[in-house]
Nucleic acid binder design. Sequence first.
DNA 1: CGGCCAGCGTGACTTCTGTCACTGCTCCCC
DNA 2: GGGGAGCAGTGACAGAAGTCACGCTGGCCG
Lengths: 227, 227
Amino acid sequence: MEANRQIEILKKTQLFGALDETEMRLLAARAGLRTYPQGEILFCEGESCQGLFIVVTGRVRIFKTSSTGREHVLAVEGPGASVAELPVFDGGVYPASGSAMEKTEALFLSRIDLRALCLEKPEVSLKLLQVVGARLRRLVGIIEELSFTTVRHRLISWILREAKKSGTATFALQMSHQELAAHIGTVRELVSRNLTRLQAQGFIAMNGREITIVDEEGLQADLASMM
Amino acid sequence: MEANRQIEILKKTQLFGALDETEMRLLAARAGLRTYPQGEILFCEGESCQGLFIVVTGRVRIFKTSSTGREHVLAVEGPGASVAELPVFDGGVYPASGSAMEKTEALFLSRIDLRALCLEKPEVSLKLLQVVGARLRRLVGIIEELSFTTVRHRLISWILREAKKSGTATFALQMSHQELAAHIGTVRELVSRNLTRLQAQGFIAMNGREITIVDEEGLQADLASMM
DNA sequence: CGGCCAGCGTGACTTCTGTCACTGCTCCCC
DNA sequence: GGGGAGCAGTGACAGAAGTCACGCTGGCCG
């Protein structure tokens, strides 16, 4: 049953997990499941927002594109997360674009339905505020990094974060330098050069697509000294 | 009557303007009016959020500080605006600091009260989402500028925005170069140099603290060519 | 009136950034 | 096995960004 599957999905989302069965059914009836092949655009910067997406499977990359074609990734959202929450309130345009990093299924909820739900179930609004708040925090963090630090610093931060995420000192670089560059707000060449330099300085070791942190304290110290 | 004055104030805010008299009274009873002299800190980056501020008079400057002391202004909010909306949802920390740019009065609402209000009056949540959404848009805009453009570009954008705001080609620079630098994410010296250069190139004319746009199209063209 | 101080303008540098161009490498598909 | 396509490393630059150091000015206060 399509509807039952959707309800299962909805239960796992931060936004709607707390709704009761009846609400859930109503919501599922309104939501449309869409499938996007890898690389497909879900929504485009500048387009008018029509609704919100809930990622079911796959991952969605939220990014800005410059007029020269450079990209800056603002966030990557996986299953259970919502994307493009803005439309609930104003009917403005999407501030960034979203694309599927792999084959992705997403539920689409129109702003009209969502708005109605918010008015009926105030908890949903609060959850939404929570999600948007987290997003706001992340954006402020990005601004801080861009405004006050160098590419090297951002790269080190990224490496440390990634290692922490994996739980060990060694982790696999799962993306191309190009993509990593888009994450930390620079270009491919600088990622390449800075990685090489960190390796030459004995802070990290690289083996194919694997990065090992050799001297974590050194990296930390480097971060501190650059500030 | 203090309470009546507060109600007058609340009526003019985006957030609570639509509430009825009863609600308004309740809210006013809960809110605390605080006064801050010029330069005083309302809240500090990293402190745990306890509530939201409504600016009554004066202006509040929202900014990030780097460890070297550089600052980046994220927003300036005047009467009727709310500041630090985050606490409604999570009890996390303030992502940035807020200070009074001049003598400022602000109403403080605790997160508990606000949360209760949101649950009771879903419209308030929607308004909040609208405000937070606008903030989100602005932050994404800042990231875009920082990530893709130069100081010169940001300065030109700022000048064009400022002129538009004033409605004429001439407007007064109401802040020091230092402060302007904090707005566009750079340092004093670069503001000074770039202003001089724009003047030398005949795009703008400066007379004391007054800036006149001489060649708006030239500026626009410059923006376009840099991208 | 003299001194002080914040704010501005600038020169001299250093370091960072981003671009271009070219070279390999590897994987994949005919 | 032979091309390609896509990614990665690197040298060479040009221009931008930020730092330091100074000198100047105008306003304010004692």
